[in-house]
Design a binder for these strands. Structure first.
Lengths: 154, 154
DNA sequence: TATTGTTATACTCTATAACTATA
DNA sequence: TATAGTTATAGAGTATAACAATA
Protein backbone atom coordinates (compact mmCIF):
# COMPACT_ATOMS: atom_id res chain seq x y z
CA UNK A 1 0.00 0.00 0.00
CA UNK A 2 1.39 3.41 -0.95
CA UNK A 3 1.56 6.62 1.01
CA UNK A 4 -1.44 8.18 -0.64
CA UNK A 5 -3.65 5.36 0.51
CA UNK A 6 -2.23 5.32 4.00
CA UNK A 7 -2.40 9.02 4.78
CA UNK A 8 -6.16 9.23 5.46
CA UNK A 9 -6.12 6.26 7.82
CA UNK A 10 -2.98 7.47 9.59
CA UNK A 11 -4.61 10.86 10.09
CA UNK A 12 -7.73 9.23 11.45
CA UNK A 13 -5.85 6.94 13.81
CA UNK A 14 -3.81 9.80 15.25
CA UNK A 15 -6.84 12.00 15.76
CA UNK A 16 -8.90 9.22 17.30
CA UNK A 17 -6.13 8.42 19.77
CA UNK A 18 -5.96 12.08 20.76
CA UNK A 19 -9.73 12.40 20.98
CA UNK A 20 -10.21 9.33 23.13
CA UNK A 21 -7.43 10.27 25.51
CA UNK A 22 -8.77 13.81 25.80
CA UNK A 23 -12.36 12.70 26.30
CA UNK A 24 -11.36 10.33 29.08
CA UNK A 25 -9.23 12.92 30.83
CA UNK A 26 -11.66 15.79 30.43
CA UNK A 27 -14.66 13.74 31.56
CA UNK A 28 -13.38 14.09 35.12
CA UNK A 29 -13.89 17.82 34.64
CA UNK A 30 -17.35 17.57 33.17
CA UNK A 31 -16.58 18.55 29.58
CA UNK A 32 -16.07 16.65 26.35
CA UNK A 33 -13.04 17.07 24.10
CA UNK A 34 -15.15 18.92 21.56
CA UNK A 35 -16.61 21.22 24.17
CA UNK A 36 -13.06 21.99 25.25
CA UNK A 37 -12.19 23.00 21.70
CA UNK A 38 -15.15 25.36 21.71
CA UNK A 39 -14.08 26.89 25.03
CA UNK A 40 -10.52 27.23 23.72
CA UNK A 41 -11.76 28.96 20.58
CA UNK A 42 -13.75 31.43 22.66
CA UNK A 43 -10.81 31.94 24.99
CA UNK A 44 -8.72 33.35 22.17
CA UNK A 45 -11.45 35.24 20.38
CA UNK A 46 -14.14 36.84 22.54
CA UNK A 47 -16.86 37.62 21.60
CA UNK A 48 -17.53 35.81 18.39
CA UNK A 49 -20.80 35.28 16.62
CA UNK A 50 -21.99 31.70 16.43
CA UNK A 51 -21.10 31.61 12.79
CA UNK A 52 -17.54 32.80 13.33
CA UNK A 53 -17.22 30.27 16.09
CA UNK A 54 -18.36 27.46 13.81
CA UNK A 55 -15.89 28.52 11.12
CA UNK A 56 -12.93 28.66 13.47
CA UNK A 57 -13.50 25.42 15.35
CA UNK A 58 -14.20 24.17 12.62
CA UNK A 59 -17.69 22.77 12.90
CA UNK A 60 -21.25 23.10 11.66
CA UNK A 61 -23.40 26.08 12.79
CA UNK A 62 -26.19 23.83 13.99
CA UNK A 63 -23.72 21.56 15.76
CA UNK A 64 -22.22 24.57 17.46
CA UNK A 65 -25.64 25.71 18.52
CA UNK A 66 -26.39 22.35 20.15
CA UNK A 67 -23.09 22.52 21.98
CA UNK A 68 -23.72 26.09 23.10
CA UNK A 69 -27.08 25.12 24.57
CA UNK A 70 -25.34 22.48 26.68
CA UNK A 71 -22.53 24.81 27.71
CA UNK A 72 -24.96 27.58 28.55
CA UNK A 73 -26.84 25.18 30.81
CA UNK A 74 -23.57 24.51 32.60
CA UNK A 75 -22.99 28.24 32.93
CA UNK A 76 -19.76 28.30 30.91
CA UNK A 77 -20.89 30.54 28.05
CA UNK A 78 -23.29 33.40 27.56
CA UNK A 79 -25.05 34.46 24.39
CA UNK A 80 -25.96 38.08 23.92
CA UNK A 81 -27.37 40.28 21.20
CA UNK A 82 -24.84 41.60 18.74
CA UNK A 83 -24.32 45.37 19.18
CA UNK A 84 -24.64 46.29 15.51
CA UNK A 85 -26.09 43.25 13.71
CA UNK A 86 -29.61 42.50 14.86
CA UNK A 87 -29.58 39.02 13.39
CA UNK A 88 -26.42 37.88 15.10
CA UNK A 89 -25.69 36.80 18.64
CA UNK A 90 -22.32 37.08 20.28
CA UNK A 91 -20.90 34.27 22.36
CA UNK A 92 -18.52 34.78 25.25
CA UNK A 93 -17.07 32.82 28.12
CA UNK A 94 -18.49 33.53 31.56
CA UNK A 95 -16.19 33.87 34.54
CA UNK A 96 -17.01 30.28 35.39
CA UNK A 97 -16.30 29.29 31.79
CA UNK A 98 -12.90 30.97 31.81
CA UNK A 99 -11.97 29.21 35.03
CA UNK A 100 -13.17 25.89 33.66
CA UNK A 101 -11.16 26.37 30.50
CA UNK A 102 -7.98 27.04 32.46
CA UNK A 103 -8.65 24.05 34.68
CA UNK A 104 -9.15 21.72 31.73
CA UNK A 105 -6.22 23.23 29.88
CA UNK A 106 -3.98 22.18 32.75
CA UNK A 107 -5.59 18.75 32.86
CA UNK A 108 -4.65 18.27 29.21
CA UNK A 109 -1.05 19.39 29.66
CA UNK A 110 0.40 15.90 29.95
CA UNK A 111 -1.43 14.74 26.84
CA UNK A 112 0.03 17.60 24.81
CA UNK A 113 3.44 16.91 26.31
CA UNK A 114 3.23 13.27 25.42
CA UNK A 115 2.31 14.05 21.82
CA UNK A 116 5.13 16.51 21.30
CA UNK A 117 7.74 14.50 23.14
CA UNK A 118 7.25 11.56 20.83
CA UNK A 119 8.91 13.56 18.04
CA UNK A 120 11.59 16.25 17.83
CA UNK A 121 10.90 19.98 18.06
CA UNK A 122 11.54 20.54 14.38
CA UNK A 123 9.37 17.58 13.50
CA UNK A 124 6.55 19.10 15.54
CA UNK A 125 6.75 22.28 13.53
CA UNK A 126 6.83 20.32 10.29
CA UNK A 127 3.84 18.31 11.37
CA UNK A 128 1.76 21.38 12.13
CA UNK A 129 2.69 22.95 8.79
CA UNK A 130 1.83 19.81 6.84
CA UNK A 131 -1.46 19.32 8.68
CA UNK A 132 -2.45 22.88 7.86
CA UNK A 133 -1.65 22.42 4.19
CA UNK A 134 -3.65 19.23 4.04
CA UNK A 135 -6.58 20.78 5.89
CA UNK A 136 -6.53 23.76 3.57
CA UNK A 137 -6.50 21.58 0.48
CA UNK A 138 -9.53 19.69 1.72
CA UNK A 139 -11.42 22.86 2.52
CA UNK A 140 -10.90 24.15 -0.99
CA UNK A 141 -13.92 22.92 -2.91
CA UNK A 142 -13.31 24.97 -6.02
CA UNK A 143 -10.56 22.72 -7.27
CA UNK A 144 -12.85 19.71 -7.17
CA UNK A 145 -15.66 21.56 -8.87
CA UNK A 146 -13.56 22.24 -11.93
CA UNK A 147 -12.36 18.67 -12.38
CA UNK A 148 -15.48 17.48 -14.12
CA UNK A 149 -16.25 19.42 -17.32
CA UNK A 150 -19.92 20.36 -17.76
CA UNK A 151 -20.30 18.16 -20.83
CA UNK A 152 -19.48 15.07 -18.80
CA UNK A 153 -22.08 15.71 -16.17
CA UNK A 154 -25.49 14.05 -16.01
CA UNK B 1 1.05 30.29 20.83
CA UNK B 2 3.73 27.63 20.52
CA UNK B 3 3.81 24.46 18.47
CA UNK B 4 2.88 22.19 21.34
CA UNK B 5 -0.34 24.04 21.91
CA UNK B 6 -1.17 24.19 18.21
CA UNK B 7 -0.59 20.58 17.31
CA UNK B 8 -3.78 19.12 18.79
CA UNK B 9 -5.99 21.71 17.10
CA UNK B 10 -4.16 21.37 13.79
CA UNK B 11 -4.62 17.61 13.94
CA UNK B 12 -8.30 18.03 14.71
CA UNK B 13 -8.87 20.55 11.93
CA UNK B 14 -7.18 18.36 9.33
CA UNK B 15 -9.12 15.28 10.36
CA UNK B 16 -12.43 17.11 10.48
CA UNK B 17 -11.89 18.48 7.00
CA UNK B 18 -11.16 14.99 5.72
CA UNK B 19 -14.08 13.48 7.58
CA UNK B 20 -16.61 16.00 6.37
CA UNK B 21 -15.48 15.76 2.78
CA UNK B 22 -15.56 11.98 2.92
CA UNK B 23 -18.95 11.84 4.59
CA UNK B 24 -20.47 14.10 1.98
CA UNK B 25 -18.95 12.17 -0.90
CA UNK B 26 -19.71 8.72 0.50
CA UNK B 27 -23.29 9.59 1.42
CA UNK B 28 -24.15 9.31 -2.28
CA UNK B 29 -23.10 5.69 -1.98
CA UNK B 30 -25.05 4.96 1.18
CA UNK B 31 -22.17 4.64 3.64
CA UNK B 32 -20.58 6.93 6.19
CA UNK B 33 -16.87 7.72 6.37
CA UNK B 34 -16.52 5.57 9.47
CA UNK B 35 -18.36 2.67 7.88
CA UNK B 36 -15.97 2.97 4.95
CA UNK B 37 -13.04 2.63 7.33
CA UNK B 38 -14.59 -0.53 8.72
CA UNK B 39 -15.10 -1.96 5.24
CA UNK B 40 -11.52 -1.04 4.32
CA UNK B 41 -10.21 -2.75 7.44
CA UNK B 42 -12.11 -5.90 6.58
CA UNK B 43 -10.95 -5.70 2.97
CA UNK B 44 -7.34 -6.06 4.03
CA UNK B 45 -7.89 -8.53 6.85
CA UNK B 46 -10.63 -11.09 6.38
CA UNK B 47 -12.01 -12.59 8.57
CA UNK B 48 -11.32 -10.81 11.79
CA UNK B 49 -13.06 -11.19 15.11
CA UNK B 50 -15.00 -8.15 16.26
CA UNK B 51 -12.32 -7.43 18.81
CA UNK B 52 -9.49 -7.48 16.27
CA UNK B 53 -11.55 -5.26 14.06
CA UNK B 54 -12.05 -2.74 16.85
CA UNK B 55 -8.34 -2.70 17.61
CA UNK B 56 -7.32 -2.14 14.01
CA UNK B 57 -9.78 0.56 13.09
CA UNK B 58 -9.22 1.79 15.87
CA UNK B 59 -12.50 1.99 17.71
CA UNK B 60 -14.46 0.67 20.66
CA UNK B 61 -15.82 -2.92 20.60
CA UNK B 62 -19.35 -1.81 21.36
CA UNK B 63 -19.12 0.95 18.77
CA UNK B 64 -17.96 -1.58 16.22
CA UNK B 65 -20.83 -3.85 17.12
CA UNK B 66 -23.35 -1.06 16.54
CA UNK B 67 -21.75 -0.36 13.17
CA UNK B 68 -21.75 -4.03 12.23
CA UNK B 69 -25.45 -4.32 12.95
CA UNK B 70 -26.10 -1.49 10.51
CA UNK B 71 -23.75 -2.90 7.87
CA UNK B 72 -25.24 -6.37 8.26
CA UNK B 73 -28.68 -4.90 7.64
CA UNK B 74 -27.36 -3.43 4.41
CA UNK B 75 -25.90 -6.80 3.48
CA UNK B 76 -22.28 -5.65 3.36
CA UNK B 77 -20.87 -7.83 6.14
CA UNK B 78 -21.57 -11.23 7.58
CA UNK B 79 -20.86 -12.46 11.08
CA UNK B 80 -20.16 -16.13 11.63
CA UNK B 81 -19.07 -18.40 14.44
CA UNK B 82 -15.34 -18.60 14.95
CA UNK B 83 -14.00 -22.04 13.92
CA UNK B 84 -11.93 -22.64 17.05
CA UNK B 85 -13.02 -20.04 19.62
CA UNK B 86 -16.61 -20.56 20.68
CA UNK B 87 -16.87 -17.11 22.24
CA UNK B 88 -15.73 -15.22 19.20
CA UNK B 89 -17.45 -14.34 15.95
CA UNK B 90 -15.67 -13.70 12.71
CA UNK B 91 -16.59 -10.79 10.50
CA UNK B 92 -16.18 -10.81 6.74
CA UNK B 93 -17.24 -8.80 3.75
CA UNK B 94 -20.02 -10.26 1.64
CA UNK B 95 -19.76 -10.17 -2.14
CA UNK B 96 -21.99 -7.12 -2.06
CA UNK B 97 -19.78 -5.60 0.62
CA UNK B 98 -16.63 -6.14 -1.42
CA UNK B 99 -18.22 -4.52 -4.44
CA UNK B 100 -19.46 -1.60 -2.32
CA UNK B 101 -16.01 -1.10 -0.86
CA UNK B 102 -14.41 -0.93 -4.30
CA UNK B 103 -17.09 1.46 -5.49
CA UNK B 104 -16.60 3.81 -2.54
CA UNK B 105 -12.84 3.50 -2.76
CA UNK B 106 -13.02 4.89 -6.27
CA UNK B 107 -15.40 7.61 -5.15
CA UNK B 108 -12.81 8.73 -2.61
CA UNK B 109 -9.94 8.76 -5.08
CA UNK B 110 -10.08 12.49 -5.78
CA UNK B 111 -10.15 13.31 -2.08
CA UNK B 112 -7.00 11.28 -1.48
CA UNK B 113 -5.41 12.85 -4.54
CA UNK B 114 -6.23 16.32 -3.32
CA UNK B 115 -4.71 15.66 0.09
CA UNK B 116 -1.49 14.26 -1.27
CA UNK B 117 -1.12 16.80 -4.05
CA UNK B 118 -1.14 19.66 -1.57
CA UNK B 119 2.31 18.55 -0.37
CA UNK B 120 5.35 16.90 -1.94
CA UNK B 121 5.86 13.14 -2.13
CA UNK B 122 8.55 13.17 0.55
CA UNK B 123 6.42 15.36 2.75
CA UNK B 124 3.62 12.83 2.46
CA UNK B 125 5.88 10.09 3.70
CA UNK B 126 7.10 12.28 6.54
CA UNK B 127 3.55 13.14 7.49
CA UNK B 128 2.51 9.51 7.69
CA UNK B 129 5.55 8.65 9.79
CA UNK B 130 4.97 11.53 12.21
CA UNK B 131 1.27 10.77 12.53
CA UNK B 132 2.07 7.19 13.40
CA UNK B 133 4.57 8.23 16.06
CA UNK B 134 2.08 10.62 17.60
CA UNK B 135 -0.69 8.04 17.53
CA UNK B 136 1.56 5.48 19.13
CA UNK B 137 2.60 7.86 21.89
CA UNK B 138 -1.02 8.55 22.73
CA UNK B 139 -1.91 4.89 22.78
CA UNK B 140 0.81 4.17 25.30
CA UNK B 141 -0.88 4.59 28.66
CA UNK B 142 1.96 3.18 30.73
CA UNK B 143 4.05 6.32 30.47
CA UNK B 144 1.26 8.43 31.90
CA UNK B 145 0.61 5.98 34.68
CA UNK B 146 4.14 6.37 36.00
CA UNK B 147 4.17 10.17 35.96
CA UNK B 148 2.28 10.57 39.22
CA UNK B 149 4.02 8.86 42.16
CA UNK B 150 1.68 6.90 44.43
CA UNK B 151 2.34 9.17 47.37
CA UNK B 152 0.89 12.13 45.49
CA UNK B 153 -2.35 10.42 44.66
CA UNK B 154 -5.62 10.87 46.50
C1' DT C 1 -10.09 -15.88 36.26
C1' DA C 2 -9.90 -13.61 31.96
C1' DT C 3 -11.88 -12.86 27.53
C1' DT C 4 -15.54 -12.37 23.59
C1' DG C 5 -19.53 -10.67 22.62
C1' DT C 6 -24.44 -9.05 23.71
C1' DT C 7 -27.79 -6.13 25.66
C1' DA C 8 -29.59 -1.99 27.55
C1' DT C 9 -29.00 2.59 27.94
C1' DA C 10 -27.73 7.36 27.44
C1' DC C 11 -25.43 11.22 25.66
C1' DT C 12 -22.91 14.01 22.27
C1' DC C 13 -22.06 15.28 17.81
C1' DT C 14 -23.63 15.85 13.27
C1' DA C 15 -26.51 17.61 9.62
C1' DT C 16 -30.65 18.89 6.77
C1' DA C 17 -34.71 21.51 5.92
C1' DA C 18 -38.15 24.80 6.90
C1' DC C 19 -38.64 28.91 9.23
C1' DT C 20 -38.20 33.95 11.29
C1' DA C 21 -35.89 38.14 11.50
C1' DT C 22 -32.62 41.26 9.88
C1' DA C 23 -28.97 43.20 6.43
C1' DT D 1 -31.59 38.39 -2.11
C1' DA D 2 -28.46 36.90 1.21
C1' DT D 3 -27.25 36.04 5.93
C1' DA D 4 -27.70 34.73 11.26
C1' DG D 5 -29.88 32.05 14.01
C1' DT D 6 -33.74 28.79 15.63
C1' DT D 7 -36.48 24.77 15.60
C1' DA D 8 -37.63 20.12 14.63
C1' DT D 9 -35.95 15.99 13.53
C1' DA D 10 -33.11 12.12 12.68
C1' DG D 11 -29.19 9.24 12.59
C1' DA D 12 -24.53 7.82 13.78
C1' DG D 13 -20.90 7.19 16.80
C1' DT D 14 -19.36 6.70 21.50
C1' DA D 15 -19.00 4.48 25.86
C1' DT D 16 -20.26 2.13 30.37
C1' DA D 17 -22.07 -1.53 33.02
C1' DA D 18 -24.27 -5.86 33.79
C1' DC D 19 -24.58 -10.19 31.78
C1' DA D 20 -23.90 -15.05 29.50
C1' DA D 21 -20.91 -18.18 27.39
C1' DT D 22 -16.47 -19.89 26.66
C1' DA D 23 -11.20 -20.18 27.21
Amino acid sequence: MNTKDELPLALRAAYHALHRRSDTRFAEHGVTADQFVLLATLARGDALTQRELATRMPSDPSTVRAMLVLLEKSGYVLRDNHPSDGRARTVALTKKGTAKFQEVWKAGQSIRDQMVNSISASESKTLVVLLRKVAESLADFSRVMTVTPPENRN
